[in-house]
Design a protein around this nucleic acid. Sequence first.
DNA 1: CGTGCCGTTGACAGGCGTCAAGTACAGTGG
DNA 2: CCACTGTACTTGACGCCTGTCAACGGCACG
Lengths: 214, 214
Amino acid sequence: MHTSVMTSSGRRLIVAPTGPRTQGEVEARPTSSFVDGESIYHSGERAGRAYRVEFGAVRVYRVLANGRRQILAFHFGGNWFGLQNEDRHRSTAEAIGITGVKSITLTEDLHTWQGLLPAVLESFLSAQEHQLVIGRQSAVERVAAFLVEMSDRSGHSHRFELFMPRVDVADYLGLTIETVSRSLTKLKNKGVIRLHGARGIEIVDYRALQNLCL
Amino acid sequence: MHTSVMTSSGRRLIVAPTGPRTQGEVEARPTSSFVDGESIYHSGERAGRAYRVEFGAVRVYRVLANGRRQILAFHFGGNWFGLQNEDRHRSTAEAIGITGVKSITLTEDLHTWQGLLPAVLESFLSAQEHQLVIGRQSAVERVAAFLVEMSDRSGHSHRFELFMPRVDVADYLGLTIETVSRSLTKLKNKGVIRLHGARGIEIVDYRALQNLCL
DNA sequence: CGTGCCGTTGACAGGCGTCAAGTACAGTGG
DNA sequence: CCACTGTACTTGACGCCTGTCAACGGCACG
């Protein structure tokens, strides 16, 4: 029997029949709930668990000594996070809105890791994709890439609500909230998107957005 | 018996006794040699192998449609790269100078992956570290972070030669060669480093460099 | 209806990219 | 041995993009 793991970008990766018990193990666990802004794990804490989002959303970030924050990834329903084998967390994971997660213990042997490997590889891939965005794209291009990503992760919907405030978008894209706001306005004025309130996004010209992500 | 895997940042990660045969498998393989600039695998090619640098160095990069290039990682002796489970490569791996690599076939089942898991996790961690650098640091800070990384990866040496030309450094840090050059000059004028020819780096004040990486 | 948070818009300055010229050095051929 | 050439790197001038600082608007909540 094949099982599949839902990864950060929503792609399904096949896990071979030698098969992990990870999926079953996590299902047996209770769901922990967190309020908006509550930390699921914090930088410096002892690690050793893997988490899966049940509902809501999670931001994983690191903060530099001077206070600058970089959000490494957003995680939505089905996504795994917290995967690492160091003894302490380098990043912090926080709930965005009311959020539920299930978790399993990561034992030192590789047994429990088997089912998580596709999720690790997918996280790695996402991190690499993001390096391109923040390393080599302009502000408007970054925002366009972000909207495409959010659209794809919400089932390729052309109309969706952002889970997170502007400051999270900014810290994800390596920009300021003002620049994010201005970029959204530019895309709106070009007729590529429409804005519905503070968080509502409607993609009018998906192709144009994709072309901006070159 | 525990085995250990040399990862991209030079840290050793312990692999549990349930143990991989990966190490032994790759040792049995012959070393392939590449000249400077020769590609080891290319974006779009079918994937399915994992590589380990024997000597020389490797750059892994992606290119946007408009020609902008982002180097995702540098790999030196002992480092694994090419780890993914998609059927085609999204990135290109090229030799920097005369380079030798050994490789193994990645079968679809998880067996061969076991020994590579620490390398995958380490690559993931490196990618996250790099997100911070290119997302939230200034030009001088990025170059400082780069020098610290290179120093650490060459056995914490305070005097070493860069394997790669300026354009590679620039494309790794999300800068231009001119800005990299100017940043190096600034660090030199502050007395933090000394430059010996085009590639020689001497770190005079390691602590000062680290403080710049905040 | 006030208050506070979130987001937008504007003015301005500075950092970095772009374009261009100049320097250092290795390799080549006479 | 030396001139020539090409590549890599540095330095300078200038402009634009984006960060910073500030004011304003919209909306939820008490």
